[in-house]
Write a protein that binds this DNA or RNA. Structure first.
Lengths: 343, 343
DNA sequence: TTTCTTTACACAATCGGTTGCTTAAATATT
DNA sequence: AATATTTAAGCAACCGATTGTGTAAAGAAA
């Protein structure tokens, strides 16, 4: 096997007896290069298998056209859809995407933020790790005018772009839907310790919906979970069903939890939705497949990704407007399916 | 907001009255730098918020410590687990990961391969797009000694690293399991047009298992699908159930198809597994959650990712051995769950 | 004391594409 | 015909980390 060297613009320049700068300009259709030359250069570039070295371009121009994504994991449906959205928007503007998984660890998030900065990404899209309380490791981006967009799990006290849904309203709508279906004792699962506001907001919506419909709030119908997993959901639901007066409805702030609830109910001979109506959150693929289908709140993951990516790309092009540090709210919808349709 | 410049080793050098080269060496504990100097340099580097510019290092050293991943999509459970595996192995050796989705389009794969090359990734891990017949766009890596590893959906005629499972054996084992459960008429779903060998191999295993157990092969029990989706699965299963003598078992080469089969059967009042036993493939999360649980073939996604990443990292360190272009086979297991357990 | 080896650091080239400035020729304007 | 403008392309600095080579000074060996 031969040892090829990467083909550079200098190789092309030599072959055509032109200056490297001419090659560089010709390849980007610079106006000061004649059409003949441009055609000739592009032709030979292709023949020689020239591929520009983005490192060199990035180093010189301080522009990498790369968006860094820093999220807990790629395996959650919501997050992998988010990536898809980012990736599609990025691709349109010829940006690359570099992905890092914090696995919900604060230390990893810190390290990876550094690594992204080290790679001189053009912008960063982040959904915070569960563990993260302090967000000072993101200052390096803000301080160097690298656009930073938080998505979904966002810090409350950081002055930058945020793309979120209205979790309060979503929680309210979900709960209201259950009330409208005739539920009188609606349970809710939430996160035990949270540094963001995501689950708290959903819970607030739940509470307000109840109060607004004159349904007394009952502490024993609200269970805080350490982890939002299937098994944790099963355990919690069993506790609920063991109550003297068990709930007749549940707002689960995640579809996996909703699935666990539906299945636990079925196992105990509790009819869903007649005796126990369930609504989840996210519209994960599984919610459509499981039987009965799970009613859910849509979480526009791809749209959020697209919005976040566009914020970065736009912001890099436009002049910096201080007032652009806005929050983008995307809409959610109640998707009524079998698990909660009683009337 | 102040306009910070990125802190460079020159800034540190100036502050400490040292040469930039000394700073560079001190930061990597070069033996020719005194401990005092090293300590002093690291200290001020931290104080000044220095973060090395990997572009500069990559340009100079032609080493980026970045692994490029080129896959159809991140949303498939198998592939997102694959990424996780790669990412974890990469992280251990301080490599970054850059992900691109071909969305099963040949043209996108070509473009993205170019982009990865343009970014001078250290190595590439790829699972081919469905559309891809020609793999010449990967030659740029081979020609420039950039390690290339194909995973799962691999070309049959490309001389490079491959990390796969034994699809033939897996198909054989799955089918044999159904036979052992007493199934006599076992159906199979497969891909209509395939340029790789993945589904063909599974089908070969299916056929051989039948023949070996003196079960006649019946063409009408094998259905080729355009897409391996839930809906396509439902349609195919309805065709199967409409046969004069419908099947009493199914080997589906994907869990989504298995789920569709189980649910279609249930809807038609066919008892699973008693009248119709099903085994899937991949051990997707859903296979454990759906009721009845789906028997399946494990597909060691994380392990494959880990193996692929390690191949790249190892290969970059070690001297090039021509005979290293090997195929790594990882094991699969039959996971017997409710959907096929009759005895 | 002289010579050899470490130790400690500086100088300058290098990676490859970009871009401001300059030169030179061709075309347009007065 | 003289000057202004446009077109075409070259020169060289630059981005920031790395590394081979060079050069002192200090310590070790002869």
């Amino acid at each position: 096997m031969e040892e090829h060297r990467h083909v550079t613009i200098y190789d092309i320049a030599e072959k055509l007896n032109l200056a490297a700068s001419t090659i560089s300009r010709a390849l980007k259709d610079h106006h000061s290069i004649s059409d003949k030359t441009i055609k000739k250069v592009k032709q030979t570039a292709k023949e020689m298998g020239f591929v520009p070295n983005t490192l060199a371009a990035g180093l010189r121009g301080n522009v990498t056209k790369t968006i860094g994504i820093l999220i807990p994991t790629v395996t959650q449906p919501f997050l992998s859809s988010l990536i898809s959205g980012i990736e599609i928007a990025a691709q349109k503007s010829d940006y690359s995407v570099i992905i890092m998984q914090s696995h919900d660890s604060y230390q990893m998030e810190v390290d990876m933020a550094k690594s992204l900065y080290s790679n001189r990404v053009s912008g960063v899209i982040c959904s915070l790790a569960m563990e993260t309380k302090d967000t000072s490791h993101f200052k390096q981006f803000s301080n160097n005018n690298i656009p930073l967009v938080f998505v979904d799990r966002v810090p409350k006290d950081y002055d930058t772009f945020r793309v979120v849904i209205n979790n309060y309203l979503a929680g309210y709508k979900a709960t209201k839907h259950l009330i409208e279906q005739g539920c009188k004792r609606i349970a809710h699962l939430t996160a035990e310790s949270e540094f963001g506001t995501l689950y708290n907001e959903r819970k607030r919506g739940y509470i307000d919906a109840l109060l607004e419909h004159d349904i007394p709030l009952q502490d024993n119908l609200i269970i805080s979970l350490k982890e939002m997993t299937y098994d944790a959901g099963v355990k919690a639901c069993n506790l609920l069903f063991d109550l003297k007066t068990p709930p007749d409805g549940l707002f689960a702030p995640g579809d996996i939890l909703a699935v666990s609830a539906v299945q636990t109910a079925k196992k105990r001979g509790i009819k869903v939705p007649d005796q126990f109506a369930v609504i989840g959150f996210n519209n994960d693929p599984i919610s459509e497949i499981i039987e009965p289908n799970i009613s859910t709140i849509t979480h526009p993951a791809e749209k959020m990704g697209k919005a976040a990516a566009e914020l970065i790309i736009k912001n890099l092009k436009s002049v910096k407007e201080e007032d652009a540090k806005e929050i983008t709210f995307l809409n959610t919808q109640v998707l009524i399916r079998e698990s909660s349709r009683k009337i």
